[in-house]
Every structure is written in structure tokens, then in C-alpha cells.
Amino acid sequence: MTKTKKSEFRANEYVVYPAHGVGQIVSIEEQEIAGLKLELFVISFEKEKMTLRVPTNKAVTVGMRSLSSPEIVDKAMATLKGKARVKRAMWSRRAQEYEQKINSGDLLAIAEVVRDLHRSDDQREQSYSERQLYEAALERLTREVAAVAGGDEVIAQKQVNDVLVSRAA
């Protein structure tokens, strides 16, 4: 059974690249780099106005994956409803762990970060770095929820927000 890597991702497909979140494969092109012919996925991240070229044979190794299934999105939403679990470790250590979860590309891990860092209006203020991590995780989560549902980020943002608000109530 010789299955080629090419069939895994296709042009126009939305994918998740761990360090950058949801992007769209605009094309698959061949380039010559240092005398070697390489086949590359050209991935566009519209919001960041960024284009990434990933060798097709390295895509899986770097953690690139297809969008989560609707079941995983439901699990992520259920994770948001849970009680925040904040370790008693120093902030720098926790911040590192949150950053690793965000950059893992794992939707459930990202949902945990959103859950743990979410503050309702009556809770204490967030530090600047807490807010930055929270917003990064929230954006990644919202984008993937939107992409799985067909693309409307405003609706996805409202869904996520409604879950977080209902939890706080």
C-alpha cells in the first residue's frame, strides 16, 4: 500500500499550521532550492497578510493538519464550559505552557488556554501578557471554529463568547 503524501492536502483546502493557525492552501508549486527540486504547499494566512511555503514532504512532520472535525469543535466548546484550572506555578512557567498549547495547533489545548485565561467582568484584571495569550488563543479557536462551520468568524466569535459568558453566569 503506497499512499503518497500528495493526496493528504489539496489546493483551496483550509489547514492548520501549528505556529500560525488556520490558513488556506492557495497552490502546490515546484521550486528549485539549492539545486534541488522541491514541491511546496503555498499557504495563505489572510489576516496576517502572510504566505508560507511548506515542502509537501515535511507538512505532516511540522504538524500541519486538516481542520478539526465538527466533533472536535464540540469537544472544544465543552472544554470552554469547564472550570478554569490554574496551576499554582509561577506566571512565567504557566505563560510558557500556555504558549506551547497555543502553538501546538491542537484545538482542545487551545480551548483549555481560552478557558483558563478568560475573565468575566467582575473578576480581577488581567496582566498585559495574560491578555496577549488569551487573545491569541481566542483568535486561533475562533478561526478554526469559523472555518469548520463554513467561514463566518463573526458568528463563530459569538458562539465562543456565548459559551464563555454562560459559564461565568
Rank of each mutant, 00 (worst) to 15 (best):
H20E: 00
L141N: 02
V86D: 10
I102V: 05
K58G: 12
A76N: 06
K3D: 15
I155M: 08
L67P: 07
Y128A: 15
N161E: 07
T4G: 08
A78D: 15
I43P: 04
R124T: 15
E32L: 15
M1Y: 13
L38I: 08
V22W: 00
Q24V: 10
A84T: 11
A76G: 06
G150M: 04
R143P: 03
S27H: 11
R94A: 02
R65F: 06
F9L: 08
V54F: 03
S92T: 15
A76L: 10
A109R: 02
W91F: 14
K37S: 14
R85T: 13
K37W: 09
L36A: 11
R65L: 07
R85Q: 15
A111S: 11
Y128Q: 08
Q157W: 03
F9W: 07
R140C: 06
G105S: 08
K6H: 15
M50W: 04
S127Y: 02
S127E: 10
R65T: 12
G105P: 01
E32D: 09
V148H: 06
A109I: 00
A76E: 01
D162Y: 01
E112M: 07
P18R: 01
K58V: 13
M1E: 13
N161R: 13
V62D: 13
A136F: 00
G82F: 01
L108R: 04
R140E: 00
A95S: 10
K37G: 06
Y128E: 14
M50S: 14
A34T: 09
S104L: 05
R167L: 00
S92M: 05
I110R: 00
Q24D: 05
R65G: 05
Y134M: 03
A59T: 02
P18I: 02
S68Q: 01
D152L: 00
Q123R: 13
V54E: 08
Y17P: 01
A109G: 10
I25M: 01
V114D: 00
V114G: 02
A89C: 07
Q100H: 12
R115P: 10
Q123P: 15
V154I: 06
K81W: 05
I28T: 13
K47V: 05
W91M: 08
R143N: 09
S92W: 05
V163I: 04
M90K: 14
V42D: 08
S68G: 09
Q126L: 13
L38F: 10
L67V: 03
V145R: 01
N103A: 08
R119H: 06
D106N: 07
E135R: 12
I33V: 12
T56W: 10
H118D: 11
R115N: 09
A147R: 01
D162M: 09
Y98N: 04
Q159L: 12
D116N: 14
S104H: 06
R65E: 04
L36Q: 13
E8M: 07
V22P: 02
N12K: 12
A109H: 03
K83Y: 07
E144G: 01
T4L: 13
M1H: 13
S68R: 03
V145L: 02
D121Q: 13
A156L: 03
A156N: 05
N12P: 10
G21P: 01
R124N: 12
K87C: 13
A146P: 06
